[in-house]
Write a protein that binds this DNA or RNA. Structure first.
Lengths: 200, 200
DNA sequence: CGAGTCGTTGAACGGAATCAATCGTCGTGG
DNA sequence: CCACGACGATTGATTCCGTTCAACGACTCG
């Protein structure tokens, strides 16, 4: 998937900053001056409410961008807290907006990037509506499989995939083993092959 | 929230079409010619896979747009099936792309629309990571509450909110009742007031 | 005045989370 | 170079709570 980096690299002057665990990249109410991309590490966006309760809005991992919506807001509406030592790329929002106004191709690519994210997020959300772990995993595989090879490449540790699917990793491994035992999938190191697409 | 309609109305020539339950707005593999907005009714986007299994990617209800990503794809990658009689607005993608290229303000507004959708979706997804129904409902309320009035306006039937939160409506009503009984919230017809923001 | 939907409560079941323990591997630093 | 720790992968046993089924009242709309 394309990233902000691919889009604005060499056009927008960026700044890389390093953060330690617990640092704030920005805080709720700060004037919004940048949008961001996580190069390494992890950042959590949370909104503090009355009496100090917080509500998590987003977890941005390496590669992901965040606070894009602040392009159109004078202030940030949440806090961004660094959870592990991280490198963050800063894109000045005025510059980004300038490019959007002056370079239609870049505007289009940015729209493409966001539209693709919307689609991905909708799909992930829809998967969460599936209660059964087995079924959810299987549908995920069907959505991700390459039609030619019947193979799903899993570039991340299985454990992380479990989190993305909203499952305890134990459950994930268990169901994966069950699916394999039933001859529905075949596992290898970094990929899963779908043998049959009926679950029964 | 802004919609495609607000954005392109009177600039892009659109066409309204009416569909019956079971109709396809478009099918997987069709050349992508439009992006869409649901005026009334409901459309489900699903991807058919080997052996006829389908996987749901998105459910678009009244007001929502869909297939925005097909602006940048030559063909549609899923089927759109109408689940209840619906009115759908068609936006020719060439026209939309033209506008994006020629009217920077519109491009910017479109980006704003998508960025806001991304934020909303990320937040919803993050809510789904909360296992406890009570906690999930409460965090949703905290995220949605107006800080001034401590009030959450619920413009839709509670039942639909339950679905959005990924809960059986029975569970939702139950926990809502429990929260009220514990003096944490106060319900009225179309809104919920948060009295305390600590759950215990 | 039914049909349909929202809202509500009760009871029972099932399945996913959780706790726990083990193994293998990889990197690292002493 | 080996010991150690960290983490991914794996399996077992138990608990818990959200779903599901069921039934009912209130309300709206045709």
């Amino acid at each position: 998937m394309q990233t902000l980096n691919d889009l604005f690299h060499d056009i927008v002057p960026t700044e890389k900053r390093v953060f330690n665990q617990g640092d704030h990249v920005f805080s709720q109410g700060d004037p919004a001056a940048h949008i961001f991309q996580v190069l390494s590490g992890q950042v959590k966006l949370e909104r503090y409410t009355i009496e100090g309760r917080s509500a998590l809005m987003h977890t941005a991992d390496a590669g992901e961008s965040f606070a894009e919506a602040s392009l159109f807001s004078p202030v940030y509406h949440c806090n961004s807290v660094v959870t592990t030592p991280s490198e963050i790329l800063f894109y000045p929002k005025v510059k980004v907006l300038e490019i959007i106004h002056s370079v239609p191709e870049k505007a289009e690519r940015f729209i493409a990037l966001l539209a693709s994210q919307v689609r991905t997020l909708r799909t992930r959300l829809e998967l969460r509506n599936i209660l059964s772990a087995r079924e959810r995993i299987f549908r995920y595989l069907l959505l991700t499989v390459s039609p030619q090879t019947s193979e799903v490449l899993i570039p991340v540790p299985f454990k992380q995939l479990a989190i993305e699917l909203g499952l305890a990793h134990e459950t994930f491994y268990r169901e994966l083993a069950a699916l394999e035992k039933d001859g529905i999938i075949k596992r290898s190191e970094k990929s899963i092959i779908i043998l049959r697409s009926n679950l029964i």
